[in-house]
Simulated scan of single mutants.
Amino acid sequence: MRTWSRVRGVLRDPGGLFGALVIALILIAAIAGPALAPYDPSAQSLETRHLPPFWMDGGSTAHLLGTDQLGRDLASRVIQGARVSTIVGVAAVLMQVLVGVTLGLLAGYWRGALDAVIMRLADVWLAVPFLVLAMALAVVLGPGLWSTVLVLGAVGWVTFARIVRAQTLSIRERDFVLASRVAGARPIRTMRAEILPNVAASVIVVATLQVSQMIIAEAALSFLGLGIQPPDVGWGSMIAEGRDSLSSAWWVAAVPGAALVIATLGINLFGDALRDELDPRIR
């Protein structure tokens, strides 16, 4: 009942409702993309190249959002791009959560030398700009879907580690944690059963917001040619393909750009509403 109450609280927020609808559409596109796409995203037809969206002169309802320089249907490619962005965003954040939460719990609970080593490593990681570090790792690992996931997962764990460590330092001194330790519970059990549930709300909120950041980062890497490669379709690579025809066929870059903006805006608004609902200090 409490969970459903929080869900209703998020959906009562206009931004949360908008974000939930956007996330639902992205998930539907990710799961049922091949069935929803009216055409093969990679199918080329030079006879229909640079066809404008249906509401413009020369547009056609056969290609609602128009076609690109190779005659590929933009609606189908945007749907396929949503699938790729979802895979990259969710998989990268899951990797960040696994690494960051584990290191944050260990650093905050054990403190001492282990804490110092983990936090110094985090400081070194943060000293390099996020995108620069991601680009460097992408060059080493090479472009591709799962390489992009590994790159983004590797560079984003610090956020979760620092948040979880800070909360663990406070929670470990509370009575229920002390009681668990006095009762003879092993440290791993104490961290899993007593501390982790109390930091879960913050982790969930940060993870939600982090998904949108990873989608943007994936688009940036793909735009630079270091991320998603054909035959996979990424919104960033679609924007890159359309930049040379902005003056004559602006929709080739604008359509995936609009999809990227709407997706990240919706996820961020949902994350903000979720934070307001889960954080008792805000309520």
Rank of each mutant, 00 (worst) to 15 (best):
S5Q: 13
V7S: 09
G15F: 02
G16L: 07
F18P: 03
I23D: 04
A30F: 01
P41W: 11
P41V: 10
Q44P: 00
L46Q: 14
R49L: 06
H50P: 11
P52E: 14
F54R: 13
S60P: 03
L65P: 00
T67G: 10
T67A: 11
D68K: 00
L70N: 15
L70E: 09
L70P: 01
S76G: 06
S76T: 01
I79D: 07
Q80M: 04
T86D: 02
I87V: 15
L94A: 14
G104L: 05
L106D: 02
L106S: 03
G108S: 06
Y109R: 14
V117K: 10
F130P: 02
A134R: 10
M135V: 10
L137N: 07
W146P: 07
G153W: 02
G156W: 07
V164Y: 09
R174V: 03
A179S: 15
G184V: 13
A185Y: 15
M191Y: 10
I195P: 00
V203S: 01
V205N: 02
V206E: 12
T208R: 08
T208I: 04
L209V: 03
Q213R: 15
Q213L: 08
L224N: 05
L224Q: 04
G225S: 06
G227V: 00
I228V: 10
V233D: 03
W235G: 01
R243W: 03
R243M: 14
D244V: 14
S245G: 15
A249K: 00
V252H: 05
V255M: 09
L260R: 05
G266L: 02
D272R: 12
A273V: 05
P280A: 07
R281S: 13
